[in-house]
Design a protein around this nucleic acid. Structure first.
Lengths: 134, 134
DNA sequence: ACTATAGTTGACGTATACGTCAATCGAGGA
DNA sequence: TCCTCGATTGACGTATACGTCAACTATAGT
């Protein structure tokens, strides 16, 4: 372990409170080492945390984030049965992600339309103002 | 108003409970008409509901969903000041959406890698099985 | 007129994701 | 050794997003 992070360092870096980090630990998202009772966060913890926050931004619950991260971060390769289950989980989560992608594209599309109409309105107003001030 | 929907119809269509629909109404996401005390949902309500659920899937809170939907669904064009504020809101929400898009692409990417490794492992196992059964 | 079948309004309960506060602990510096 | 500063563990509180139940009500059919 290169240079472990304190809870304060990590919470500042990710703009979280120490309370949140402890909560994530409680939910199994991270598992920092200890020196006495004090938590020491490794780069692995830091990575898992990054992935967790990414999942959160996409609307996954902490529980779902843990599932997804555990897919990325497997202890042992495991037997064929495990691997098949893993593939299933991946397909399941990918389906959700693709749905989100469609939602995202639709939302961005509509948003573009609204902005265009908005700018057109502003242009009309601007033209009127110019006309009056001539 | 063509053919208004009952609360049951709408809740079945979107796989929600009537309670959820009433909750969304309370939060200002929809505003169904009434016949007496009974709610009558219009196509506009239905559309707003679709947009709300889309927003939810992307991890927005109901409050944020309401904001976004109200952008799409403006009463009057409004004056220049309103329109500029609208453009600002759009840019703000778009920034969030683009962040989500980056998160989504990163997650899908990693997920593809994991699946590839998983399939490679399965292939190795399969080859071993074939070798032993010869 | 009577009943069954939605629909309505509270009111309280619950899961998730933390915030906040108090009490305590533990290592380092004057 | 004392004190302080950061960290820790409960324990309780809070916001969001509903679920659940009870008590009515309204309306349609017989």
């Amino acid at each position: 372990m290169e240079r472990p992070y304190s809870i304060q360092q990590l919470s500042r870096e990710f703009d979280l409170t120490p309370r949140a980090l402890r909560f994530y630990e409680d939910k199994g998202l991270i598992a920092p080492a200890r020196r006495g009772t004090t938590r020491l966060y490794s780069d692995r913890d830091r990575t898992r945390l990054r992935l967790a926050l990414r999942g959160k931004r996409l609307g996954f619950s902490l529980e779902e984030c843990r599932e997804i991260i555990d897919l990325y971060d497997p202890g042992q390769p495991g037997g064929a049965r495990q691997l098949l289950r893993l593939c299933d989980k991946i397909r399941e989560h990918r389906a959700q992600l693709l749905q989100k992608l469609r939602d995202l594209e639709a939302t961005l599309g509509t948003m573009g339309d609204v902005e265009a109409r908005c700018l057109a309105e502003l242009l009309k107003i601007d033209l009127n103002v110019r006309k009056l001030s001539q």
